[in-house]
Amino acid sequence: MSRRGRLFVFVAGALGISALFVWGFSGLPDFGVQPSVYGEQLSERAVDERHATNVVAATTFDYRGLDTMIEEFILFSAVIGILLLLRAQRDEEEDAPHDMAESRRPLPTSDAVRVFGLGLIGPTILFGTYVVAHGHLTPGGGFQGGVVLASGLLLVYLAGEFLSFERLAPEKLMEATEAVAAWTYVAVGLAGLVAGGLFLTNFLPLGRIGDVFSAGMIPLINVAVALEVAAAFVLLSDEFLEQAVLVRKRDRS
């Protein structure tokens, strides 16, 4: 289809979607006035029932824990898809890292990047751990903390070399971590099924409101999700970095 033709189809479709938007939005509650009944109920009950001060975390990992588990497996299967798509193909071979343009000298990492990168690794990992551990108390949780932890590992790549990054976070270990962490979520759910009769029923002591070890199974799920997300993001970056530095076509060599 020509560019003009495609644009014409888009404009026609956009007008139709706009009409649907107007129709749909006119049925929405007024902006900034009423919260949903469900949301209001959760805000009122979550602290008493679950001893978690972060109601968003209580919603994500407890009241709607099943949805989050399925969502975690979306991430899991997407990473499997990417590993499959980016694996070395039959007509490629993995190669020691070197630049494709022979005349171009790779720029050495500047000392400033190395020093600040190295200095940031510790604080980033510490901050990520804090975000995960306090997910049920303050803003944060497994997803956010997991991404922070993964960036802590990526700083190793930034400050050092790709190979030291691969040594520190070997692909096999990351794959195993991701799988075990993803299934830990399911195991927690099954333990709730055995102990409480329903999938993902809380079976751990609720503890004192505001303590790090409180809110029952929410911190446990947070840790599982954090490991899953961190391993998934390290694997993703690893695969894309490998594309840049390791894989090349045989016919070019």
Partner: peptide, 30 residues
């Protein structure tokens, strides 16, 4: 307080968005 349910959904939404982007970028590489 504001509605916690939609905030949890937005969190989910963001994660799905990242995975979709990563998958599509892998397809672009291929």
């Amino acid at each position: 307080v504001v509605d916690p349910v939609v905030q949890a959904m937005t969190l989910t939404d963001g994660v799905v968005s990242v995975t979709v982007s990563a998958l599509l970028l892998a397809l672009a590489v291929q």
